[in-house]
């Protein structure tokens, strides 16, 4: 059978372009990173209300992304939300035990993320520990209610 070099080249380039496109969709569009699984450590945090926080949300410190939310579940003992965080390994053993975690919102309608603020405790958080001091998400209805009841009591 007669073989055509231009055709083979065309198909080869086509398939290569497909692979490159997939890489683009993975890295640039979904923001995947090639972190090794051992490069992170886990912390837990309980929130009274997580608002619309979702798995894979960012975890930041002073605005810098340092990790991601990996799972959210209901704690059946306290009936609050237990959020599992995965943080960069370089922070392991360097976060004070009284570090606070707050659920923040990017802009008025943006996605929600977790912000960490370091405390002053000499003891450090280790893999699997729980952050005690948390601040729930702001829920718009609660804010308005608070505002209205303040107006009435004034």
């Amino acid at each position: 059978m007669k073989r055509s070099k231009t055709m083979e080249l065309g198909v080869g380039l086509f398939m290569l372009a497909g692979v490159l496109g997939m890489l683009f969709l993975g890295l640039r569009v979904s923001g995947l990173t090639f972190n090794m699984p051992g490069d992170t450590f886990r912390l837990e945090a309980n929130f009274a209300n997580i608002g619309s926080l979702k798995p894979r949300a960012r975890v930041t410190m002073s605005g810098v992304t340092v990790g991601r939310v990996t799972a959210i579940e209901l704690d059946p003992e306290w009936y609050d939300a237990r959020v599992i965080l995965e943080l960069d390994a370089e922070l392991e053993g360097r976060l004070a035990r009284d570090t606070t975690a707050a659920i923040l919102t990017a802009g008025l309608l943006g996605e929600q993320y977790i912000g960490l603020t370091v405390g002053g405790d000499p003891d450090m958080l280790a893999d699997g520990d729980t952050i005690r001091d948390t601040q729930s998400a702001l829920v718009l209805e609660e804010l308005i209610q608070q505002f209205v009841s303040n107006m009435v009591s004034d």
């Binding site: 969709l25 640039r28 979904s30 923001g31």
Partner: peptide, 15 residues
């Protein structure tokens, strides 16, 4: 544009 995209697109779930 890119940041919002990256934080909302899940590779397995969407792509």
């Amino acid at each position: 544009y890119w940041g919002n995209m990256q934080s909302s697109v899940a590779f397995i779930g969407d792509v």
